[in-house]
Every structure is written in structure tokens, then in C-alpha cells.
Amino acid sequence: METPNILQAVPPRTQNAVLDLKTFAGNASSLEDPMWFLRAGQKCWLRGTGTARNGNPHAFIVYAARTITEAEVTAGVASPVLRSELNKLMDNTSITLTFSVATNGGSLANVTCPERVLLVKQAIAIIEERFVGQTTHTYTQGGIVDTPTMKVTFVSGPNRAGIVPYGNDQYYSGQSYVMCQNVPHSVPPQKHRFDFKHKLESIKFAWVWKQNPGQVTFYDEHHRVLAVHNYPEENKGGFWVEYSPPPGQVISSMEVTVEDYSFIDNFTMSYRL
């Protein structure tokens, strides 16, 4: 008996092949190759099962009780697999396709073919923000920096913040976002909101010259708190802030609370296309 296929999987007609959603647009294409016992008029089914982005099982129907045509007896049974269903699956997890047929002319399947297992790679984009091209300027509370990837708002607090040139190493890239400019200890602290222009599945950025306690709060698209990261220790030399939300959730914004003269730069972010 033949095993169902998705034609975009590589290598083709191979168990555990990779179905990379970045390599094609629109729906995928399924094909059940001809088999000696298939006849026109028989009913057939193709089902998919996998793991949803939230970690729960996800099952969907490609087609159900479909009538095989004369042409399909020799060419095989072909059908689109909706991209909307494939997009629901967790990245780097398996999808299993099961083809069954009612060879006795009935409405219930009595023959099930071997399953096809494929590895799904979601279309994930990786982007960076280095504040390249941003002019040097600082401002007081209410000021905004708008870049292609984010809008940064100085929400509250005294003193100044904005874009200034500083270092150029693993943590800096020339222009950086400065907070509490030239102030060793700000009371009250400054708060800065970063609204992202994509729904992020991961984020990493550098925080440099932080000497007093700081905090980063990550929010979902409904402004519900996803996580709070506290950084009480002094770390002048710089460190990486990294966060990926639970499966099925995305980062829409974050808020940085800062008490002293320090810098944020060198963002790397990912989002689903």
C-alpha cells in the first residue's frame, strides 16, 4: 500500500522528510499515489495530526468521504493541505498524514494505508535592530524613537533618554538607546516601553553599564504580562536579556525599568511569517 505524500516535503516521498513552510507560498499539495484496489466511486479520507503551537495535540481533516474519480484511479488522489492548518503547528514538530478508503463501497473506511510522518519547519523570520540610521537626539518623558522594527516611548521618570553614539562591540553597534543619561541613580526610576511591529516569538538584546537594579516586563498582544525578569546585580560590562514565550503566545511589547545611566542595543528578534 502507498503512503500519502505532501509534494513540497524534501526529500520527496520519504519518511521524516522536512516540510519547510518558507520554501513555498500558499497551500501545500497532498497526493496519494494510485493503488491496485482503488476504484472510481469509492470514498476516501485524509487526516493530519500534529502538535499545536500551544503544545496540545492538533488534528485536522484534509478531506473526508471524498469520492474517487476515474482520473484519480490512474493519477492518484490529490488535494490541497490548507496553509492555515499547517500554520497552527508548532515549529520543528512532526505531522502525521493518514489515508483511508472504503473499498467495499460503504461510507466507512475499511482500509488504512501506512502513515506518512514529516517534520514541519515554520516560516520564521529573524530580524535585528541596531538603531542604525537613527539620528543622535535625547528627550525627556514622552519622547519617542520610531524604527522599522519598534517604537520606543519614554513613559515616565526624570532626566533624559534617547539615541546617542557609544561603543561598538558585541553589545553596541554605534548608535544605542541611552536611559537615565548621565545620571548615576535616578529616583524615581525611568520606564521605557518598546512596542514591537511584529508579533515576536523570541527576543534577545544587550543591556550595558547597568549598575543599579533593573527590570524587564514582557507583554502579549492583549497587554497581559508574559514574564518579568529582574536584574538586581551590577553589570557594567554588559549582558544579554533573552526571552521566548510559551508555545502559542507572542511578545507584543516590553517595558524596561531602569535606575541608572545605561544602554540598550543589538536586538535580535524572530516572528512567524
Rank of each mutant, 00 (worst) to 15 (best):
M254W: 01
W240C: 00
L46P: 07
Q181L: 13
Y231A: 03
S30G: 01
V62P: 04
D20Y: 03
G76T: 10
F205M: 05
K204N: 11
V120N: 00
Q134A: 06
I203E: 01
R272W: 05
T96G: 06
R193W: 00
T135Y: 07
Y231S: 09
A161F: 14
L89D: 06
P34V: 05
A125L: 12
D260K: 03
R39V: 15
I127Y: 11
G167T: 04
V228P: 04
Y63T: 04
Y261K: 05
A59W: 06
V117D: 05
I95N: 03
G55W: 01
Q175E: 12
F263Q: 06
V164H: 08
T96E: 02
W207H: 06
I124D: 01
E242V: 12
P247G: 10
A71I: 01
G167K: 06
G55F: 06
P80D: 07
T3V: 13
H192A: 07
V258C: 08
N266Q: 11
L86H: 07
N56S: 13
I264N: 14
A59K: 07
L200K: 05
T135E: 14
Y231L: 08
N56F: 02
N182S: 12
T14W: 00
D260G: 08
V225T: 12
Q211K: 11
L118Q: 10
A59P: 02
S29M: 09
K199C: 03
F205D: 04
K204H: 13
T136E: 15
S30R: 05
E233M: 13
P165V: 01
T268Q: 10
S253H: 05
N104A: 11
E72Y: 11
A59M: 06
V216R: 05
H222V: 00
P246E: 06
L21E: 04
K22G: 07
V101R: 00
E242H: 08
F131W: 05
R224A: 03
Q181V: 09
G76N: 06
W240D: 01
E242A: 08
I144P: 08
P4V: 00
E32W: 02
N16G: 10
R224T: 02
F37L: 15
V187I: 11
Q175K: 13
F37G: 14
F154T: 08
P57T: 11
S270C: 10
V256Y: 01
A102N: 10
A9G: 02
P165E: 12
W36A: 15
K121A: 03
T93C: 02
R116I: 00
D20T: 03
P4T: 00
G238N: 06
A109T: 12
L86T: 12
H198M: 03
Q249G: 00
F154M: 03
A123L: 04
M150L: 14
F60S: 15
D146Y: 09
A109F: 02
M35W: 14
G237N: 12
A125H: 13
H223P: 00
N159G: 09
A40I: 07
D91E: 07
K121E: 09
C113R: 09
G214V: 11
Q170A: 14
P57V: 09
L31C: 09
Y243D: 00
P213G: 08
Y219D: 01
I127A: 11
G214A: 15
G133Y: 09
W36F: 11
T112C: 07
T74A: 14
G143N: 03
R53T: 04
E128F: 14
C44M: 02
D169Q: 11
M254K: 00
R160E: 10
M150Q: 14
F194M: 05
A227M: 15
A52C: 03
